[in-house]
């Protein structure tokens, strides 16, 4: 597999867009679920986080379109070629980016207006699921079920991975009862959400592979195995947080706060690698069921 400079740029922009969009959406979901438990200072920081991530997402999406045009032309001049950029925009990227930007705008406005409303969550969900409007799930025929499964998977990923940075902000404020209550509430909700995202992801994977042997017999399948191994790692860390650290936090053990901050840092790192791996194989390879 040969990756040129502009292909690498597409993958980098895609990774940033994934991380920023899911991060912004997840922070909104986090405020909805845990907002009543956290201090106003942390709430304010999380609102800034939503705003910064939303802006980064919009810039990342634009950079991905320009890098795709450069990848097709083979040089930077492609970014200035209006008809090439227009082709990328028309091939799904335009609609996905527009839905994402509108969703994030709605989410950011609603979050900053005061309490986190269902309107903010609707905007966050629209932004997180915008990736389903383009890509392999949309190419399956019929595409409605795969797109719904991918949307469910994306909302789940946003809820889980997007909550990590806000949770770490809460863990920094040093107020043990608040940290313990927030970690407990998030952990209780995450069990169902993560379960749903795994079921949706596994069903979609089955559709994209077409044949289980494609998991090891195709380049796409081998990338998926790498992703699943990384997901197993992050699930292990999440389980450690919920089953070991959260009970210690609830029991008033201050040392568990440092443990929580450290494991969240590793989860963030692993989450970033998972998104980069996903961006790489969805750009460079295609699922066997389609080709």
């Amino acid at each position: 597999m040969s990756v040129g400079l502009w292909d690498a740029a597409v993958i980098a922009a895609k990774t940033i867009t994934y991380a920023a969009t899911l991060g912004a959406a997840g922070a909104v979901f986090f405020l909805k679920v845990c907002g009543a438990l956290i201090a106003s200072m942390a709430t304010s920081r999380i609102r800034y986080l939503v705003l910064c991530m939303a802006l980064l997402s919009v810039f990342g999406g634009a950079a991905q379109i320009l890098a795709s045009a450069a990848s097709m032309s083979g040089d930077a001049a492609g970014m200035l070629d209006g008809s090439l950029v227009g082709m990328v925009w028309q091939a799904g990227a335009g609609r996905a980016n527009a839905i994402r930007a509108l969703g994030l705008l709605l989410a950011a406005l609603a979050v900053w207006s005061d309490r986190t409303s269902w309107l903010a969550c609707l905007g966050a969900a629209a932004a997180a699921t915008s990736f389903a409007w383009t890509g392999h799930a949309r190419s399956l025929n019929p595409s409605v079920l795969p797109m719904l499964l991918l949307s469910l998977h994306l909302v789940g990923v946003a809820f889980w991975l997007g909550a990590l940075a806000p949770l770490r902000l809460v863990a920094r404020d040093g107020d043990l009862p608040r940290i313990a209550a927030t970690a407990a509430r998030f952990g209780a909700a995450a069990v169902f959400v993560v379960g749903a995202l795994i079921v949706a992801g596994a069903t979609l994977l089955w559709m994209l592979l077409g044949d289980p042997t494609a998991l090891w017999a195709s380049a796409y399948g081998r990338w998926v195995i790498l992703k699943l191994a990384l997901v197993a790692g992050i699930l292990g860390l999440a389980a450690f947080n919920k089953l070991r650290l959260t009970p210690r936090l609830l029991a008033g053990d201050r040392r568990a706060v440092r443990g929580l901050r450290d494991t969240i840092r590793f989860e963030l790192l692993l989450g970033g690698v998972i998104l980069a791996v996903t961006a790489t194989f969805t750009t460079m390879t295609g699922p066997p069921a389609l080709y």
Binding site: M72, G74, A91, A93
Partner: peptide
């Protein structure tokens, strides 16, 4: 010959 094409269904580049 060096070529690149775009799939309108999924937006992916082939070259």
């Amino acid at each position: 010959v060096q070529w690149s094409a775009l799939s309108p269904d999924d937006g992916h580049v082939t070259k």
